[in-house]
Computed example of a mutant assay.
Amino acid sequence: MTITQLQYVLAVAEHKNFTLAAEKCFVTQPTLSMQIQKIEDELGILIFDRSKKPIQLTEIGQKIVNQAKNIVNEADRIQDIVDQQKGFVGGEFRLGIIPTIMPTLLPMFLNNFIKKYPKVKLVIEELNTEDIIFKLNNGHLDAAIAATPLNEEKIKEIVLYFEPFVAYIPEGHNHFNKKEIEISDLNLDEILLLQDGHCFRDNVLNLCKRSDNAEAARFQLESGSFETLIKLADEGLGTTLLPYLHTLDLKETDKVKLRHFTEPKPAREVSLIYPKNELKIHIIDALRSTIAGVVKGAIVFQNVQIVSPKPVK
């Protein structure tokens, strides 16, 4: 069997369709099917149950796919080992970033990074945490920037910074005249939240308590935009919480509505995460040092209380 045949097996296992897998591997469907048939004949087993739609792995097929992932990933690392030995910082590097970090952090470091490391081709995807974990574990990402701790067995986390939460309190609200607020001031029933799937939503849910005499919600909102939450708060429909970096670009008329928490300030931990068997450490170190260089002046908070990004059970 060959590495190429194993790559074809992994493609079919992922997409559950021979035609789509062939497209992703840039070969014809008959070629891919023939190569998978060869490996099945060589092993004397069926990897896929073709009678089911979509195509399913057989029991032995699942075990073979698990091992094939290890083999293909390790084969891909050979060039990484050579590059690291030569001190070469270059090649393709696939980076995932969660949506609530992408728009504020990426513009801060991207230009610096590509100027300093012009031979690195960054391929950046905006993904939620669940998709990031899946892609890291399946070799589709080299690293990611996400809220931590995630406590994933196969993923290593390097903390980049702690980002406090800041409350956005519109005029007329009973906490508007406070200089600082307490966590106990928060009422989950009036806080506007991002849509499900955003870890920042889970941060807020883990931080806040629901009122004992909560009334039924006046409306249901699903938004992935902090800007939408701010506008709704200004309309008197509630308050919201923002990540600190997001507040830096607000208009001055909106900044007067921001209220910081008393210390220790509730905050999220933002980390560079990557598979424990990742060998592109030279690029990871370059990313870490570049990001650390740009955020150390923007975020200087130390006395913080880390809030979990894991979904509420």
Rank of each mutant, 00 (worst) to 15 (best):
N17G: 04
I284V: 07
S223W: 04
H282L: 14
E227C: 06
L122M: 11
K119G: 07
I181Q: 03
T290E: 13
D212W: 13
I98E: 11
K310T: 03
G197I: 08
P103R: 08
T4N: 08
A267E: 04
A286W: 15
Q195K: 15
L221G: 03
Q67Y: 00
E157T: 13
L20W: 14
V307G: 09
F301G: 05
E182S: 14
Y117C: 03
Q305S: 11
D49L: 04
Q67A: 01
R218P: 10
D285K: 14
K231V: 10
G87H: 00
K52E: 14
R288H: 12
Y8L: 00
F18S: 04
R94K: 13
I181L: 02
E153K: 12
A167N: 04
I191H: 05
P103T: 01
V204L: 03
N174Q: 11
D83V: 11
L122S: 09
T228K: 15
L248S: 08
L192H: 07
A233H: 06
N70H: 13
H173F: 10
L141M: 02
E40R: 13
H173N: 10
A13D: 00
I97L: 12
I114D: 05
V270H: 00
L141H: 09
H15P: 03
E252H: 06
D196A: 09
A167F: 03
I273M: 06
H246N: 13
V82K: 12
V72R: 00
E163D: 08
L141A: 04
L192S: 05
L20Q: 12
M108Q: 14
N111Q: 12
L242G: 05
L106N: 10
D41F: 11
I181M: 01
F109Y: 08
G90H: 06
L207V: 04
P30R: 07
D212K: 15
E227D: 09
S33Q: 15
V256A: 13
Q56L: 08
I98M: 09
K121D: 15
S184C: 07
A21S: 04
A233F: 01
V9G: 02
G91C: 02
Y168C: 01
N187H: 13
L258K: 06
E42Y: 12
T104I: 05
T262M: 10
Q220G: 09
S271W: 05
N203T: 12
G91H: 06
N213R: 12
Y244W: 15
L46V: 13
E222A: 11
A143V: 01
K178V: 05
T2G: 06
N17S: 02
G238V: 06
G139V: 01
V304L: 07
D285G: 08
G61E: 02
G139S: 08
